[in-house]
Design a protein around this nucleic acid. Structure first.
Lengths: 195, 195
DNA sequence: TCCTTAACCGGAGCCTGTCTCCGCTTCACC
DNA sequence: GGTGAAGCGGAGACAGGCTCCGGTTAAGGA
């Protein structure tokens, strides 16, 4: 229902437990952030701690599992945006989406930046995709002369995460849209400012 | 030497211990962020855990004590900037300073935003000062027509903290100056864009 | 239907960190 | 140098992270 059974198929009880853990994790991560107690997640899911750790050796693995659906949706939407008409608005929409998704759970921006740095991890691969899409969208906007040349893909990704960090803390009603609009104006070349 | 002996003067041994704790805290906070082990700080400072907790009932109290000098310097520099010639450059300089100071220790941006929300705390009062200076500098730039009217003091403070958060994680060589310059361009009114 | 076994389960237990409590020590003042 | 208040410190209670291993169970063949 929610997760990729990597390698061979899981036994029925294992799959059941895995799903229960992921569902419970989403619940508790939402309430207490990604640093929610793993033992408590196991308890609430009705399994032992050992079971949780066997399925998800690290906290990051569990976080990644809790987010697979979101990440898949993001990749799809990002691919659409790369093909859309207005490169600047595409970047804006992408940043809004990035901020929205990365602010899903408290502490997630930290996890994402950690993962972006070390490619091997579970979150790492999805992060790489997000960074790739960010770079593609940026390059397109720059080629169209809509974004300054000294803006790098890393700048954009970093600022997206930074805004997401702020959003997880203040929970503004607009989900960070205002901040994204503010920041993205700074990307415009000097001769093309717009409201 | 470093800290305000609130209330009556401390006994000589108490003052000695307090200083040792603060000095050690700066060291370990610098290495491991503001979530460094308090017991370890006590151990390294050569005091018992009880002593540490008596002087600094909460972690935030210790963080605030470790930062008093920085905060005093900031207040002074901020006051100077409010009286300086170019309102936009003053804001830029202030943001650079804010980012630099708040990125002193890993995890500090979180602590600052927490403190900014609840005025009672030790960090809270210095945060209030920083927010006040931010608001003053912003208002001045807006009156001069150099910053858009829909930018709020909260936006500026939040973005400063967000950039500081990014800086604590990536430690860019320029201390976040590039990001500040990028973001602050977005504050300019539509008819006044500049590189 | 039963048997076998690889896969899986779960919680006891260890480690590290937080924070409190209270008997002992030391400073400061007379 | 005597006295009392101020201060000390570490044992220990508690919580979370993570592991290890004896017991359990699903799944597939006879």
């Amino acid at each position: 229902m929610t997760s990729p059974p990597r390698g061979r198929a899981l036994r029925a009880d294992a799959r059941r437990n895995r799903d229960a853990i992921v569902t419970t994790a989403r619940e508790l991560f939402g309430r207490a952030g990604v640093s929610a107690s793993l033992d408590e997640i196991a308890r609430c899911a009705g399994v032992g701690a050992g079971t949780l750790y066997r399925h998800f050796p690290t906290r990051e693995d569990l976080v990644a599992a809790a987010l697979v659906d979101n990440m898949a949706a993001m990749r799809e939407r990002g691919t659409q945006l790369v093909a859309s008409s207005d490169p600047f608005d595409a970047m804006r929409a992408w940043l809004v989406l990035l901020v929205e998704q990365i602010s899903t759970y408290g502490g997630l921006p930290d996890a994402v930046l950690d993962a972006a740095r070390q490619a091997g991890s579970a979150l790492g691969t999805t992060c790489a995709t997000m960074q790739q899409l960010t770079a593609d969208l940026l390059r397109r906007a720059q080629h169209a002369g809509l974004v300054r040349d000294d803006v790098t893909a890393e700048d954009v990704f970093t600022l997206g995460n930074a805004i997401a960090w702020a959003v997880t803390r203040d929970r503004p009603a607009d989900g960070g849209r205002h901040l994204v609009n503010l920041v993205i104006q700074g990307f415009r070349p000097a001769d093309r400012a717009a409201a």
